[in-house]
Amino acid sequence: MRMSEGVEWGLHCCVVLAWLDDLTPLPVGRLAEVFDLPAEYLKKQLQPLAKAGILRSEAGARGGYRLGRAPQDISLMDVVTAIEGSTDPFQCTEIRRRGAGKTAGVEEFAHPCGISKAMRKAELAWRRELAGQTLADLIASTPATAERRTRRFIERTS
């Protein structure tokens, strides 16, 4: 399964926004500085998160992003779907029915393709695993030193 770097960026930004809830909203430029990322590209990654309600965007001179829901209410799958879309990664086009398959009897195709079934099963397990983990779970497994370091960085450069 290949995902864009936007998923990683989005998840990290969500963690930071959860840590720094008392300092939000944070402008996209400030979030970009935390990870040394290009602000304009990061903004394009955060916009779908705002559209999905994962983040809330606030306009104005003191505007920026904040979490749109509590960390325990944001699954990793929510973030992946917001950034990557909900299209199935595997698309079965039934190539088994082409070429040599054109001469096969109808009974040969009475059951779904084994490859398609295996891929769907793997995809479902992947989706369930991501849906079962929340932003709060990520935060709980992150060293407290990372939060303190990030907070000092934001407060020092404000």
Rank of each mutant, 00 (worst) to 15 (best):
C14Y: 04
F153K: 15
L31W: 03
T142Y: 07
I95G: 10
S86H: 00
I83L: 14
R69W: 03
T24I: 01
V34H: 03
L49G: 00
L46I: 00
R149P: 00
L76D: 03
G101D: 05
R62I: 04
R2G: 02
M119Y: 15
T87G: 01
E129H: 02
D21W: 06
A39L: 11
M77A: 15
E147A: 11
A39P: 05
K43S: 08
E33S: 10
V79R: 09
L138R: 06
V79A: 07
P48M: 11
Q72W: 04
R152K: 12
V106E: 06
E8Y: 15
P27A: 11
R120V: 07
D88M: 10
P38Y: 10
Q91D: 08
V7Y: 05
A136M: 02
G63P: 06
R97K: 15
G53Q: 09
A136C: 02
F35R: 11
R151L: 01
A82F: 04
K44L: 03
I95W: 14
G101H: 07
V79N: 05
I154M: 12
I54A: 00
A50S: 02
R148M: 13
W126M: 08
K102A: 12
R151P: 01
P27F: 09
I95Q: 13
M3T: 15
I115Y: 14
A70L: 09
A50R: 00
G68N: 06
L46D: 00
L76E: 01
K44I: 00
F109P: 03
V34D: 03
